[in-house]
């Protein structure tokens, strides 16, 4: 029975793939040409890189919701976990790994700042910078230099939610001036940078939290 169901699923997946590929090759050229529009409006967007312009200005509203999605994933993860006592500090076991980490982490911090700054005119931006920061935190945790997070103090909560709060506040303030997330051309660049800095910190904390809040499996074994 299971075999037949499996074969049916595979067969349907195969048919779906074939139909999709065949239909794609019959597509005429699109009627709407968005890349041209992006190029035309790029000077008014406040950034020079077209992808960043779409991400934070033309479709900045998507990005606002997306930040909420990330915070929500952390909330969903924390919601069912029981509070637990702080794990005892473990002595680093291997001298090489912590040494290497101590050397790498400042470099990662520097990379994050560069990525944030680069976002305005080449690939980069808040999300990439935050990912590097979070990776540094995970590295620190894995080498026992940073303990797992066990409590949500006010400072941490503010840090996690701060980026979204800043983003919402700017959106609401701009609404007073015109439209939701309508950046004035003169200040678009600096406003976007301001939001990106706040986002980098919060997103870094959220992404790190998705790992550092996880209960340690070792606790049971001990």
């Amino acid at each position: 029975m299971k075999r037949i169901a499996g074969a049916a699923v595979m067969l349907s997946a195969g048919i779906l793939a074939m139909a999709l590929v065949v239909s794609m090759f019959e597509l005429p050229p699109p009627a709407v040409r968005l890349p041209q529009m992006v190029q035309e409006k790029l000077p008014q967007s406040g950034v020079e890189h077209p992808v960043t312009a779409v991400l934070l200005n033309f479709r900045g509203y998507d990005t606002l919701l997306e930040v909420a999605v990330l915070l929500l994933a952390l909330l969903g993860m924390l919601a069912g976990e029981r509070p637990r006592p702080a794990a005892p500090d473990r002595a680093p076991t291997d001298p090489v790994l912590p040494g290497l980490t101590r050397f790498l982490v400042p470099l990662m911090g520097l990379t994050a700042v560069y990525l944030l700054w680069a976002g305005a005119h080449r690939p980069g931006g808040a999300f990439q910078a935050a990912a590097v920061l979070a990776a540094a935190a995970v590295l620190l945790h894995l080498t026992d230099l940073l303990p797992a997070w066990t409590s949500l103090r006010l400072r941490l909560r503010t840090g996690l939610a701060g980026g979204l709060l800043v983003f919402i506040t700017v959106a609401a303030w701009l609404l007073g001036e015109g439209r939701l997330l309508q950046y004035p051309v003169a200040h678009a660049g600096s406003l976007i940078l301001f939001i990106e800095v706040a986002l980098t910190i919060s997103l870094g904390l959220i992404l790190a939290g998705l790992f550092l809040f996880l209960p340690d499996d070792d606790e049971r074994r001990r």
Binding site: L34, P35, V38, P50, V51, A53, V54, L55, F58, R59, D62, T63, E66, V69, L70, L72, A73, F127, L207
Partner: peptide, 17 residues
């Protein structure tokens, strides 16, 4: 086309979450 590239960046973050 920068528009779908930006959409995919959004989509990747959603998928990560």
């Amino acid at each position: 086309d920068p528009v779908p590239q930006a959409m995919v960046l959004t989509g990747i973050v959603v998928a990560v979450a």
